[in-house]
C-alpha cells in the first residue's frame, strides 16, 4: 500500500509545491526520485539548480496528493541524510514562476500579426523569428503558461519545453535554506 493510500485523510488531493534544499552530493537526486517512486507519488514537475548557499542546491517539486500524504512525504524526505530542508509552499504565501519556450507555426502574414499581438498581451518575448515559425519565451505562473498554450493551439504548436515551476516563500522570515527544523 502506498503512503497515499495509507494516510487516513478526509482532505482533497491537490498540487503541492515543495522546495527541497539538498547538499550537493553524488546521487542525491536519485535518492529523492527513488523515494517518490517507492512511496507511490508522481512528480508533476521538477527543477534543480544551485541555491544561494555554496554546496547546496534547491529543487522544486510539484507533486499531487492529499495534505496528510504530502506531510508524510515531507517527513520521508527529511529522513534522507542529504536533505537539509523541506518546505511545502502550499502552506503559506509564496511566489512561483515557470519558464516556457514555445515554437509556433506562422502560415500567413495575418497569423504573424495576430501572434505578435497575443505575445504583447501575455508579455511574452519573441526570441527567434523565421519565415514559417516564431519562438516565444513566456514566464509566469502555471496558469499563465497554460493559457498561452491554449491561445497557440489554433496556430499550430511545433515544439514546446517548460522548466517546471520554481518557488520561494514570500515572507522574509522563512528561508528555504534554513537548517532542518524537522530533523530525521
Amino acid at each position: 500500500m502506498s503512503a497515499t493510500q495509507a494516510a487516513q485523510v478526509l482532505d482533497v488531493a491537490r498540487n503541492h509545491v515543495l522546495s527541497v534544499t539538498v547538499r550537493d552530493r553524488p546521487g542525491v537526486l536519485v535518492r529523492i526520485a527513488a523515494l517518490f517512486a517507492r512511496r507511490g507519488f508522481n512528480i508533476e514537475s521538477l527543477s534543480v539548480a544551485q541555491s544561494e548557499t555554496p554546496g547546496m542546491s534547491r529543487t522544486t517539486f510539484v507533486v499531487f496528493g492529499e495534505d496528510a500524504a504530502i506531510e508524510q512525504l515531507q517527513k520521508q524526505l527529511q529522513k534522507l541524510i542529504d536533505v537539509v530542508k523541506v518546505i511545502d509552499h502550499s502552506e503559506g504565501p509564496y511566489v512561483e514562476r515557470e519558464l516556457m519556450l514555445i515554437k509556433v507555426a506562422v502560415r500567413t502574414p495575418e497569423d504573424r500579426v495576430e501572434l505578435r499581438q497575443i505575445a504583447q498581451d501575455f508579455r511574452a518575448r519573441i526570441i527567434d523569428v523565421d519565415r514559417h515559425a516564431l519562438v516565444f519565451e513566456v514566464t509566469g505562473d502555471e496558469g499563465k503558461t497554460d493559457a498561452f498554450i491554449e491561445q497557440m493551439r489554433s496556430f499550430g504548436i511545433l515544439e514546446l519545453i517548460r522548466t517546471g515551476r520554481v518557488a520561494l516563500p514570500r515572507s522574509a522570515g522563512q528561508r528555504a535554506t534554513d537548517t532542518a527544523t524537522r530533523a530525521a
Partner: peptide, 8 residues
C-alpha cells in the same frame, strides 16, 4: 557536520 541530519 551533517546539516541534514539532526535527530530530535
Amino acid at each position: 557536520d551533517l546539516p541534514g541530519y539532526r535527530p530530535t
